[in-house]
């Protein structure tokens, strides 16, 4: 099933970590490397899709309100 493949891939990636020294973290600090590049945008899309689809949740989601139409 799809979900097992995805979890297996995640475990494989997580166990292949390298040690990154603090002075090597420049790339990771770039805005486009953040988990959320645009927080207002992410909140906007979460609300839009929440009102049009059956699914909810996911990283950083959740808020109150419906706005369902």
């Amino acid at each position: 099933m799809k979900i097992e493949f995805v979890v297996g891939l995640a475990i494989l990636l997580l166990t292949s970590c390298e040690s990154v020294q603090p002075w090597e973290r420049g790339t990771l600090a770039r805005p486009e490397m953040q988990l959320s590049r645009d927080q207002l945008g992410d909140a906007l899309y979460d609300q839009v899709y929440y009102s049009k689809e059956a699914s909810s949740g996911g990283a950083g989601a959740a808020g109150a309100g419906c706005g369902c139409n």
């Binding site: 990636l13 390298e18 973290r25 988990l35 996911g58």
Partner: peptide
């Protein structure tokens, strides 16, 4: 769980229940 994999990549794995 968010993990820095190497100098140029990160991975976040998460789960939730409501």
């Amino acid at each position: 769980w968010t993990q820095v994999l190497n100098k140029a990549s990160t991975l976040q794995v998460g789960a939730g229940v409501t």
